[in-house]
Amino acid sequence: MGLIISIIVIGGGLLWILYLSIKGRDVDRRIVYLFVGTTVALAIIFRLEFGEVATPIVKSVFDKIENLPAGSKIVLSYDFDPAMAPEVNPMANAFIRHILEKKHRLYFMSLWATGQSLLSVSLDSVLKPEFPDAKYGVDYCNLGFKAGNEGVLNVVITNLRKMFPSDANGNSLDSLPMFKDVESLKDMDLLISIGGGKPGVKEWVLFAGDPGKVAMAGGSAAVSTPLLYPYWPKQLIGLLGGTKGAAEYEAELIKRYPRFKDKSMPALRMMGPQTMAHVVIIAFIVIGNIAYFRSRKKGEQS
């Protein structure tokens, strides 16, 4: 029902804009804005959802975490801000679920201060309620944020304690059992950076993954995803790109671990509005071009 109403409203609106454009009348930019907002709002209200299947670039990250032996050491770096969060936060939460489900050791850190505040939300809304048995300092820990962008990575790849004498709560790293056999990031089994700006996945590849020869995976905001493809598959074992990448990972997680089906999977939910909005953008490009070619033809005739 929701889909039908959405199609009628969106289709009707597009036809009207097409009519105005063909007639050569100017469509106010605010009408375009209103139309985009309405499209997204309708898709959210009617909860339009579609299924997802993991593509190879996403599946390879999932398989890597899946196939690591229990107790493997994985770094998850929150390198993003609230502006990227709707796209990349679902990836981060999916990684937390998967990593802890597989009983790996999870080391959080951030190259963006805002990442720490968003991590705090993830810890309270996902990690603590869904994994009440996970112990701080044994199963997971939060190293915190350090200023200095790639400079931070340049130090931690050879000497973790020099940059992080203590974790985000002021505990000495030597007092936490999960740091017993960790001197630097070279001792990790997998590095995952989730970001979309600078510093982000690219800096992790350049300053940690490549020089340390450690397996590296990334989750990236859609805007910077195409830029990272040259690193795949040799320098990056896999990459989650934007909401679509996050949705694919969530789908794979649910397929493998059905117990997560009832948990919040925001990326899968976002793909409905995303699809509708893409249709509208495509329609705008087509309508704009129809109007352009008509006016050009008229110009040639006159």
Binding site: F35, V36, A85, P86, T114
Partner: peptide
Amino acid sequence: SPLNSTMYALLAFYVASASYRAFR
């Protein structure tokens, strides 16, 4: 957080408008 994310969300509207007006 709302200020930061809404600032960037504005770009969705501008991208839509640009698609209609500029991509020829």
